[in-house]
C-alpha cells in the first residue's frame, strides 16, 4: 500500500485512469481506424531515480512522443510515448497515404503534438469530469530522445515524489505499441485527496 493514498483511494485512481484512458483509446481508434488494446493502468509511487529505472526496464531506448503539463486540483505532466523508429509510421496512419514522404516528414512534429493533445486531454478531461474538478492543460510539446531526456522533461523538480500511472496500448492490426504516463507531483496532493474522498463518498451514499 502506498503511504500517501489508502487502498480505496489507490483503487479509485486506477479505475478513474481506466475510464479516462478508455475514452482516449476510443479517440485513438477513431483516428487510426483500428482497434486499440489497453493494459490495466499500473500506479506506482516513486522517487525520480526509481522512475528512471522503471522507464529503462519498460520502454525502448529511443523514444518519441508528446508531453503536456497540467495544473488545477492536481499538477504534473502527461506523456504519450512511442518507439522513435515507429513515429513516422504512426504519422502516416493518422494523416493518410495520399501525402508524399517529405510532406509526412514535414508534418511529423505537428501530427504527434495533435495526437498527444487529443489523447492526453481526453484522459485528463475525463478524470476532471468524474471528480467534478477542473484541470488546465498547456500546449502539447513533441519530443524525441532517450529515457533520461524524457524524464528530465517530465520531472523538473528533482525532489518530487511522483505518482507514475503507466498504461500500455497497442493497435490490433499493426504491430505498434505505445505508452501513456502521468507524472503527478504529490507535494500538492491535498486537493487530490479531497477530490477522491468526495468521489468515494458519492459512490457509497449517505
Amino acid at each position: 500500500m502506498s503511504p500517501i493514498f489508502s487502498d480505496d483511494e489507490q483503487e479509485t485512481i486506477v479505475e478513474l485512469m481506466n475510464l479516462g484512458v478508455g475514452r482516449a483509446a476510443s479517440a485513438l481508434s477513431q483516428l487510426v481506424k483500428d482497434e486499440v488494446l489497453l493494459s490495466v493502468p499500473k500506479v506506482d509511487f516513486v522517487q525520480l531515480d526509481t522512475a528512471e529505472d522503471t522507464f529503462k526496464q519498460l520502454l525502448p531506448k529511443s523514444l518519441a512522443g508528446v508531453t503536456q503539463a497540467f495544473d488545477g486540483f492536481i499538477s504534473g505532466k502527461a506523456a504519450l510515448i512511442f518507439p522513435e523508429e515507429r513515429s513516422l509510421e504512426l504519422v502516416r496512419i493518422v494523416v493518410g497515404n495520399e501525402l508524399s514522404a517529405s510532406e509526412i516528414s514535414e508534418l511529423e512534429q505537428d501530427t504527434l503534438a495533435e495526437l498527444g493533445n487529443i489523447l492526453l486531454n481526453s484522459c485528463l478531461a475525463s478524470l476532471a469530469n468524474l471528480l467534478k474538478r477542473e484541470i488546465n492543460t498547456s500546449l502539447p510539446e513533441a519530443y524525441s530522445g532517450d529515457h533520461k531526456k524524457m524524464l528530465e522533461i517530465l520531472c523538473d523538480q528533482k525532489d518530487s515524489l511522483i505518482m507514475l500511472v503507466q498504461i500500455d496500448f497497442s493497435l490490433r492490426q499493426r504491430n505498434l505499441q505505445g505508452y501513456l504516463a502521468f507524472i503527478i507531483d504529490l507535494r500538492s496532493a491535498d486537493g487530490f485527496h479531497i477530490a477522491l474522498q468526495e468521489y468515494l463518498a458519492d459512490l457509497l451514499g449517505p
Partner: peptide
Amino acid sequence: ANVQDAIQERAAQQGMKFLGK
C-alpha cells in the same frame, strides 16, 4: 479535445456550440 464539463459550460455561456476532438 478538452472535453471537460467546465469548458463545455463556459463555451455554452459564450454562445458557442461544442465539438469534441
